[in-house]
Amino acid sequence: MGEIVLSQVKKSFGGISIIQGIDLTIEDGEFVVFVGPSGCGKSTLLRLIAGLEDTSSGTIAIDGRDATRLPPARRGLAMVFQSYALYPHMTVGKNIAFPLRMAGMPKEEQERKVEAAAKVLNLTPYLDRRPSQLSGGQRQRVAIGRAIVREPSAFLFDEPLSNLDAALRVSMRQEISELHQSLKTTMVYVTHDQVEAMTMADKIVVLNAGRIEQVGSPLELYKTPANLFVAGFIGSPKMNFIEGAEAAKHAAHTLGVRPEHVDIAADGPWKGVVGISEHLGSDTFLKVQVEGIGPLTVRAGGEVRLRHGDPVSLAPQTGKLHRFDAAGKTIAA
């Protein structure tokens, strides 16, 4: 079990409204990712769910029970912090056993559970070490171990991978996804890395300035962003936005087209000049200065031989244009 329902949750710090009325249902067993720019309130929302902050108004229900006023320990949730928050004076084994010990579980049972968790997370050789004697990835695994032994109804992760290097991030990302597959427990995951969001999530919640901009599966958000903000936030590199005459031709205030949806075509309607190009091997990203439109980012194949200053013609793929009205809302096709 692990269904979390937020209704009209608001939070303000000293008169400044940070979370401005969130309605959200997190289904049991779902992997939900909160994304959004820095300072938009992702951590705050997670901490509200955890019970580490009190809501200013609104209710939080966990498994159908009102948990708005419950202390963190009684909500049955486990949290993994960005700084890992391991207890430095305890060994890895003691760290993992701590929640069990606090729950008054018999010693043998504690040991059994710690060993099982350590085995899943490949921590068995390190059980007698102190956290300071571990690498970042190992510490992260200890923090996860401490969370899973409690068998919580949901896991909360606050940017758990942001202190790791890129390679480790990818492998830990897969480990967490793997863990979700095997435990089938609800996970709420905060990140500002949209690759993490796209690859891990069943459902992404895009937050902006304390509001939900859109909720949906990764592909929904990619294909049908509800507004300019989501369109610009999901997808890498960013979607190109075109305003003015070209947008007016399509009866929109703003026209959006993703770099991967623009082709280089000799008879393309958009004529421009190549600026800088970024070669990644598999892809090449070109910055093209298009006449009457402005700069566009274009994804081309890995073997493109265009140089700075070369003229180029571009054609947007049909049906892949996004149209937005003056308020930034998507205009239905």
């Binding site: 955890a50 580490l52 320990a73 949290m79 912090f81 391991l86 207890y87 701590f98 606090m102």
Partner: peptide, 8 residues
């Protein structure tokens, strides 16, 4: 906070 969540 972690300890608080762990029920301490």
């Amino acid at each position: 906070e972690a300890a608080e969540m762990d029920g301490a």
